[in-house]
């Protein structure tokens, strides 16, 4: 029961998608089963993401409740989660579902602050706090990537030299000054980098990796559907 039922469900839900591809939904018994199943998966998938967020709240609440070391930082996390989440889930108008109950208590002019539309609290927090911090986090990687580049680009052997040469050429090619510098050696050099490195060797390797990964994903999918692969169920 604990493992057989999930295996049967996985097989049926997968089979519907495979069969829908080969049979015309309009002329066969399938109808709009494919869209319906995809919507079901989307709904359950949404709940799984919520599960992750609830788990973060649980872990942080526990640290705050037990006043463990650094609990004030965890409190900051909790406050920011709720500051972003609560306004986003409140109804925007009295016409929306649950809105008629909510706006009996609160004035309807508050509606523009709720939801996720431009002008809402959610949008403000995203644009002025979350987005700049995200950009800063990635920008900081510029410093670490520079030290990583020093280690990776040392020309110790033929392969590392190839990596170094390509990276230097691409970095020069990506900036106007570098491109102007490359043109000193020949007007066609930036064009050659684009054609033979980016659209040639690089595209070929990406294609090879993508084909290999797709074959792996397809075989893993078959294993999951047939119940051979069950590690996603965990123990117990």
């Amino acid at each position: 029961m604990r493992t057989t039922l999930p295996v049967i469900i996985a097989f049926i839900s997968g089979l519907i998608m495979v069969v829908s591809f080969f049979l015309n939904p309009q002329t066969t018994f399938l109808g709009n089963t494919e869209e319906e199943v995809l919507q079901w998966a989307s709904i359950i998938g949404g709940f799984t993401l919520l599960l992750g967020v609830v788990s973060i709240v649980r872990v942080n609440s526990k640290t705050v409740g037990q006043r463990k070391k650094g609990w004030l930082f965890n409190l900051a996390t909790l406050i920011s989660i709720f500051a972003m989440a609560i306004p986003s889930i409140l109804p925007v108008t009295s016409q929306s579902n649950f809105g008629s109950i909510f706006y009996k208590v609160f004035p309807e002019s508050w509606g523009s602050l709720f939801g996720t539309a431009p002008g809402s609290i959610y949008d403000w927090l995203f644009n002025y706090l979350d987005s700049p911090m995200m950009a800063t986090m990635f920008a900081m990687l510029a410093f670490y990537i520079a030290s990583a580049a020093y280690r990776a680009f040392r020309a110790r052997n033929a392969e590392a030299t190839l990596l170094l040469l390509t990276a230097v050429l691409v970095m020069l090619w990506r900036i106007p000054m570098g491109e102007a510098f490359l043109r000193l050696f020949g007007d066609n050099i930036p064009g050659y980098i684009n054609t033979y490195i980016m659209n040639g060797a690089n595209a070929a390797v990406q294609r090879g990796i993508v084909i290999g990964a797709a074959l792996g994903a397809a075989s893993m999918s078959l294993r999951i559907m047939l119940g051979i692969e069950r590690t996603y169920m965990g123990k117990g």
Binding site: L5, I9, A10, S13, G14, I44, M220, S221, I224, M233
Partner: peptide, 15 residues
């Protein structure tokens, strides 16, 4: 696991 199996099976079928 029941919900997870639905998602995994569906994703496997699509993939």
């Amino acid at each position: 696991r029941i919900s997870l199996a639905f998602i995994m099976g569906n994703t496997a079928g699509v993939f």
